[in-house]
Amino acid sequence: MSNNVNPLAMMAVSSMPNAQGKNGKSASWYEVMAEAWGKTLNAKATEIETAADELAGGNDKPAHITKMTALAQQMGFMSNSAHTSLQSVGTALETMARKQ
Results as ranks from 00 to 15, higher is better:
Tyr30Cys: 01
Arg98Thr: 09
Lys39Trp: 07
Met68Arg: 13
Glu35Tyr: 09
Ala92Thr: 15
Pro62Asp: 07
Gly90Ile: 08
Ile65Gly: 02
Glu94Arg: 15
Thr46Arg: 15
Leu86Phe: 09
Glu94Asp: 12
Lys44Thr: 07
Ala97Cys: 05
Lys39Ala: 10
Ser26Trp: 07
Met68Ser: 05
Asp60Glu: 05
Leu86Val: 08
Lys39Pro: 01
Thr66Ile: 06
Gly24Asn: 07
Pro62Arg: 01
His83Ala: 12
Ala34Gly: 07
His83Ser: 13
Thr40His: 14
Ala52Asn: 14
Gly76Asp: 11
Met75Tyr: 14
Gln20Leu: 08
Pro7Gly: 01
Ala52Asp: 02
Leu71Ser: 07
Gly21Leu: 02
Leu8Ile: 06
Lys67Met: 03
Ala82His: 07
Met11Ile: 08
Ser79Ala: 15
Leu86Cys: 03
Gly76Leu: 10
Ala52Lys: 15
Ala51Trp: 07
Phe77Thr: 15
Gly38Glu: 09
Glu49Gln: 10
Ser85Pro: 02
Ser88Leu: 12
Lys67Thr: 02
Glu35Leu: 00
Thr50Glu: 09
Gln74Trp: 01
Lys25Trp: 06
Thr46Gly: 10
Thr66Ala: 15
His83Gln: 11
Val32Ile: 05
Ala97Gly: 07
Val5Asp: 13
Met68Ala: 08
Leu8Thr: 03
Gln20Cys: 00
Gly38Cys: 07
Glu31Gln: 10
Asn4Asp: 11
Glu49Val: 03
Val89Trp: 04
Tyr30Leu: 02
Ala36Gln: 11
Ala70Arg: 12
